[in-house]
């Protein structure tokens, strides 16, 4: 039950969406792009965000694209997480996605919605950061393509009126060895204490994290430490942990101390498996 009223628009092209946004913005309608909409509905119900107009981008063809092309996997931002899991063209993304919210919710939550949402876990971005994916962004200035690490820095870096259209992931990344683990406060449901997504690209480990800080991130410096040839696993991990880019979360899900304990254990497990494989 949403107390405030808003207008609902469903444009069919990128241009139309951007134009609508500009126009509604000028009219002080506080327009919001709307994809899965699950978070917008829950925040509106509690009067935690304001809008008088939502622009549903699900009818925009490009936002629905799900193409395994010659060079790239194209994922429209309005694809639901379940659609992406079922097609399973990007197994690491499938694996991360399957731990987000719950199955029924993922029938509604979209890739773009998860990445651009307010709830700071935004785990679906982790595989995209690890694979140097490209983010296709639309807006009043037309369409632009940015590398993931530029488009996403703690949050999606969207200018006024911009929205995520799709992501492009190079096909050679899709088949690389990967692991992802989500550890929760207790058992199998709930927000993460930490989610780790890891990829092995040409012998080098890449790792991205959610739940550790108040934003998801991939850290080159942490990866460099993990990939150093000197030192035991423990030593390399300790060095890597020094480069966590922000204070570790300390909240009702878990203390900072405990999150670090969990992080270390989980990372050890991932690295051990890969090093054992490598040595075998």
């Amino acid at each position: 039950m949403i107390p405030v009223d808003f207008d609902y628009y469903k444009p069919e092209s990128i241009e139309e969406a951007a134009r609508l946004h500009e126009q509604l913005d000028r009219q002080k309608m506080l327009p919001l792009y709307y994809s899965g909409g699950t978070e917008i509905i829950t925040l509106l119900r509690l009067d935690l965000i304001q809008t008088k107009a939502v622009i549903d981008i699900k009818a925009i063809h490009e936002c629905r694209e799900h193409i395994l092309g010659e060079d790239y996997l194209v994922l429209g931002s309005s694809l639901t997480l379940t659609q992406i899991e079922e097609r399973n063209a990007f197994p690491l993304l499938t694996s991360v996605s399957k731990e987000i919210a719950d199955h029924t919710a993922r029938n509604k939550i979209t890739l773009g919605g998860n990445i651009c949402g307010e709830i700071f876990y935004r785990e679906a971005v982790l595989p995209l950061l690890l694979t140097d994916s490209l983010f296709v962004i639309g807006g009043p200035q037309g369409v632009k393509i940015l590398p993931a690490h530029e488009a996403f820095q703690q949050t999606m870096q969207l200018g006024r009126g911009e929205f995520l259209i799709q992501t492009l992931t190079r096909k050679d990344f899709l088949g690389m060895p990967y692991m992802s683990v989500k550890i929760r406060q207790q058992w199998e449901t709930g927000y993460p204490l930490v989610t780790i997504a890891a990829l092995k690209a040409k012998g080098e480990i890449r790792a991205a994290f959610s739940g550790l800080c108040s934003f998801p991130f991939r850290s080159k410096r942490m990866e460099d430490e993990l990939n150093r040839k000197d030192g035991t696993l423990d030593v390399r991990m300790d060095r890597a942990l020094r480069h966590i880019p922000a204070p570790v979360l300390n909240d009702i899900e878990g203390s900072a101390e405990y999150r670090l304990f969990v992080l270390k254990n989980t990372l050890t497990d991932i690295l051990t498996v890969w090093e054992v494989e490598q040595n075998a």
């Binding site: 207790q186 058992w187 199998e188 449901t189 709930g190 927000y191 009702i252």
Partner: peptide, 10 residues
């Protein structure tokens, strides 16, 4: 979502 009773499978 933050007060979480046990779920199926747990």
């Amino acid at each position: 979502r933050t007060y979480r009773p046990i779920r199926y499978g747990e």
